[in-house]
């Protein structure tokens, strides 16, 4: 509990900064929407002029930019998943590694706590921070929809688009939490985690663009929260949710197993 509260306190500033910046960008984007939508026909022409790959990568072959959800998916959603993913990855990678990097681990482990208690405090703090991040983004984005969008849209689908990134962020944080066992230098942990997020993002784009490499998409967490999918199905795919959560749970479970047996030297 002490560790959890401490992590909340130390992570407070960075979660607020990340969430407010991304929420603010969403507000700006939705503020632009009415002028786009007013001239829907010209917009379609514009999209037609985009390279085919671009349209495909953003799912514009499956939906129209004039639709508010599709507009948000193309302009705002990808930032929430991508930049939020980077935030989640950094958070997951550093929360444990920093104790060894800053040599505070001997202090911490000399206290009457088990290693599992340390891990649990950290994991809960990551989950709480990511929940707070997504809640702030969700509330602000909903308000900007209410404020700027006059056309009809499905509120349920919007909520799905706001909930899906949370799952993705949890998965990335869990994967990086696990990876940080092997890169305890904080800077290295940062590079690895940002590399993982950006790398798997482009992996998904490549899979969308290249029919022969479609299978590659399964390796990318981004595939499972694809906005065009969510909008066209108006639901989250149960299998996809299962895959994300399982990957995260396996990563966290493996971290518990390995950390419990690890030699900690600074």
């Amino acid at each position: 509990m002490n560790i959890f509260l401490r992590e909340l306190r130390t992570g407070r500033r960075s979660v607020l900064v990340w969430a407010l910046v991304i929420a603010g960008l969403n507000v700006l984007i939705m503020a632009v929407y009415p002028s786009f939508a007013a001239d829907a026909a010209r917009l379609e022409e514009l999209v037609a002029m985009y390279p085919e790959g671009f349209a495909k990568a953003f799912g514009l072959d499956r939906m129209s930019l004039a639709d508010p959800l599709a507009f948000y998916a193309t302009e705002g959603y990808f930032m929430v998943v991508l930049f939020g993913g980077i935030y989640a990855a950094i958070l997951g990678a550093s929360i444990l590694a920093k104790e060894e990097d800053e040599k505070t681990i001997e202090y911490l482990l000399a206290l009457p706590v088990t290693r599992n208690e340390v891990l649990t405090g950290k994991v809960l703090a990551v989950v709480a921070n990511l929940a707070l991040f997504n809640l702030i983004v969700a509330v602000v984005t909903c308000l900007s929809f209410v404020g700027f969008v006059t056309r009809d849209y499905s509120t349920a689908t919007l909520l799905l688009l706001l909930a899906a990134p949370f799952l993705l962020h949890l998965t990335f944080a869990a994967l990086c939490f696990f990876l940080s066992l092997f890169w305890t230098r904080r800077r290295a942990a940062y590079s690895i985690s940002i590399g993982l997020v950006v790398g798997t993002y482009f992996l998904n784009v490549i899979a969308l663009l290249t029919d022969d490499l479609r299978w590659l998409g399964w390796l990318s967490p981004f595939k499972y929260v694809d906005a065009a999918d969510i909008i066209s199905k108006q639901s989250l795919d149960g299998l996809y949710v299962f895959i994300l959560l399982t990957a995260g749970a396996v990563a966290v479970g493996a971290t518990y197993l390995l950390y419990g047996r690890r030699d900690i030297t600074v």
């Binding site: 040599k103 482990l109 600074v266």
Partner: peptide, 15 residues
């Protein structure tokens, strides 16, 4: 660790 006090040789504290 509940009953032991430990002074590390070299350590960091939350700065």
């Amino acid at each position: 660790r509940e009953k032991v006090g430990y002074l590390p040789g070299e350590t960091g504290y939350y700065d």
